[in-house]
């Protein structure tokens, strides 16, 4: 019974890791680099939703606050690409790593300056609601997290597999040059993908905020989500989600049956094992360079 409880909350947590990991993968596919600010974008998205929605702040209705936050974060992601990332065109991957680490600090500073460093609680219509199924407590927040993640994943899948823009983005992620030559607006697509990852980050942030208080440092969760993305094999969207679920499930179980520090380490140990045994991740899309 206890295991079932752990499993359930693990899946809900894993969904959030998975969503942040999705953001990593989206950007890895478009810019071929890692956006180390992904966790901080999640944090910023959560705070913007909180700022719009909480009664002590703007006091907008819950749904409007969330949609507003998604739109704003689309703009932030899009703007980061337009103003900064695009400048790195042709520079090594490493440059993007440094740039986004710095962006992360800036996001944290912005959020800290506006909302302070003490934890705040996001007011939701369903806070505190839960059901008891024969000893297993299902909270509304956890259920909604799982549902929303499923819906968002389907939507993203539809976007990439069925829409023209999505297919173009796929093409660009496989070979920028070739895509460019056949008329895919590679540069504009990159902005779009960054915007999209801002939206995904916001959804993750809002879901995170439904489960507890938030402060500007929750972005550090990004490192764990990042492990998830790596386990899934950076280039794979379903892989990222599964990686997130894996970490989400293993973490509380390890915490229950192993000493605390070991549980903290567990996502990274799994990641290292995956990296060593399958350097490209579980859902590898990497091929040897052709000469």
């Amino acid at each position: 019974m206890e295991l079932l409880q752990l499993l359930f909350s693990g899946i809900a947590n894993g969904c959030i890791y998975g969503l942040v990991a999705l953001g990593f993968v989206l950007i890895y596919k478009s810019s071929e680099g890692v956006n180390f600010a992904q966790g901080d974008m999640m944090m910023l998205g959560a705070f913007i939703a909180l700022g719009l929605g909480n009664s002590a702040q703007m006091g907008l209705p819950f749904g409007i606050a969330i949609i507003g936050a998604m739109i704003i974060m689309y703009g932030v992601g899009w703007g980061v690409e337009r103003v900064f990332v695009r400048q790195l065109f042709g520079q090594p991957q490493f440059a993007l790593v440094i740039l986004t680490i710095a962006m992360g600090f800036i996001f944290r500073f912005i959020a800290g300056s506006i909302w302070g460093y003490t934890p705040l609680v996001f007011e939701t219509p369903f806070s505190g609601m839960n059901w008891n199924f024969g000893g297993v407590i299902l909270s509304a927040a956890d259920l909604i997290t799982i549902l929303v993640t499923a819906v968002l994943t389907l939507a993203l899948w539809f976007f990439f597999a069925r829409t023209k823009t999505g297919l173009a983005a796929q093409a660009a992620s496989q070979n920028q040059m070739a895509a460019y030559i056949v008329g895919v607006p590679v540069i504009r697509l990159n902005s779009l993908i960054w915007g999209l990852s801002g939206v995904v980050a916001t959804v993750a942030g809002v879901l995170y905020a439904t489960k507890g208080a938030i402060d500007p440092n929750i972005g550090l969760l990004g490192i764990k989500a990042f492990a998830a993305a790596v386990i899934g094999g950076m280039g794979s969207l379903p892989g990222a989600l599964l990686g997130g679920l894996l970490i989400g499930i293993i973490e509380p179980i390890a915490g229950r049956y192993a000493p605390g520090e070991l549980a903290q380490m567990s996502p990274y140990i799994i990641m290292l094992i995956v990296l060593i045994t399958r350097p490209g991740g579980l859902f590898s899309q990497i091929h040897a360079k052709k000469v």
Partner: peptide, 24 residues
Amino acid sequence: PAVRMSGIYLAIATLAVFVIVEEL
């Protein structure tokens, strides 16, 4: 073991090593 990885994957592995060392 890390040399089989390159670029960004190596950076990630070192990050993991960092977290593990910190806990150790």
